[in-house]
């Protein structure tokens, strides 16, 4: 029985709570972009993706590639909540000897498909996985989450060209369009707009949704699956979503909460969960 939108919303807030707890325990990490992507992660891991936490190497599983590897906390939270490993392990994030490295590492933790963290590379990797699926006649889908700032990297456009040239209709990309990067407003650092036009020009089907609206995300994925081209879902999001003082703050791109901030963040997220 698939989770309802209301249940998925709750899952997303649970992932957010994990993100705050993990990054605070680590004393570092990237909470802002983790919170903006939480709704998508809940939709993918608890509704859309065909996967089996008991068999992470299942050849017909759908694949998820986290191109914006710095939001590893939200991926780890989704994997733990799915049952890939115990949720207690989440608090080892970024610690010596932990499987939960600062950025995801393939082979270290079940459920992590590719090593990422250096931006601009995940879409190419996703193309390779999608192409292998085509070669082998498998019907899995490949989902790739990109940051918006990372689309300033040229390799993405090589990959966009490749995906449409090879007819990779089993590839669905998401852009977490929270409009903030380390130095601030993406449009001031290096403008990305008009963003849909860029993807359209490379032959992709483009969908645009409110990235915090569960129904819209699900609906766009269903449409993207039917597309005969590679598809991108641009999700308009709020960086730091779900914690009032973190919302739209570029400063929380790469720093954890201080103790008093942590208290408030947890209070807000627990209220949302009640």
């Amino acid at each position: 029985m698939p989770l309802s939108p209301a249940e998925l919303k709750r899952k997303a807030d649970l992932l957010r709570l994990h993100v705050i707890e993990m990054t605070t325990a680590a004393g570092s990490g990237h909470p802002g972009g983790s919170l903006s992507a939480a709704d998508l992660m809940a939709v993918l891991y608890f509704r859309v993706m065909r996967h089996d936490p008991g068999n992470p190497a299942w050849e017909d599983r759908d694949r998820f590639v986290l191109s914006k590897g710095h939001v590893a906390p939200v991926l780890y939270a989704a994997l733990a909540e799915s049952g890939y490993f115990p949720t207690e392990e989440l608090l080892t994030l970024r610690k010596l000897g932990s499987r939960l490295q600062g950025h995801p590492v393939r082979g270290k933790l079940p459920g992590v498909e590719m090593s990422t963290g250096s931006l601009g590379q995940g879409l190419s990797m996703s193309c390779g996985i999608a192409l292998a699926g085509k070669m082998d006649g498998r019907d899995y889908n490949v989902y790739c989450l990109l940051g918006d700032g990372e689309l300033q990297s040229g390799q993405n456009y090589e990959a966009m060209m490749f995906a449409s040239a090879k007819g990779l209709d089993n590839l669905i990309a998401f852009v977490d369009r929270n409009r903030l990067q380390i130095e601030g407003d993406t449009e001031k650092v290096m403008p990305l707009d008009p963003l849909p036009d860029k993807w359209l020009a490379f032959g992709w089907d483009v969908f645009e949704v409110d990235g915090h609206n569960i129904e819209q995300i699900i609906g766009a994925i269903e449409e993207a699956k039917r597309s005969e081209s590679p598809s991108v879902i641009i999700m308009n999001t709020v960086k730091g979503k779900g914690v009032s003082f973190m919302e739209n703050q570029a400063g929380f791109h790469g720093r954890a909460c201080k103790p008093e901030e942590y208290e408030q963040a947890v209070r807000e997220l627990k209220e949302a969960l009640e």
Binding site: M114, S124, I129, A165
Partner: peptide
């Protein structure tokens, strides 16, 4: 195509899929 960075990323994805 003339896109070596993408070529390597695609190669990695293919290898991760058993090739």
């Amino acid at each position: 195509g003339i896109a070596e960075q993408d070529m390597i990323g695609v190669a990695a994805g293919l290898a991760a899929s058993g090739k």
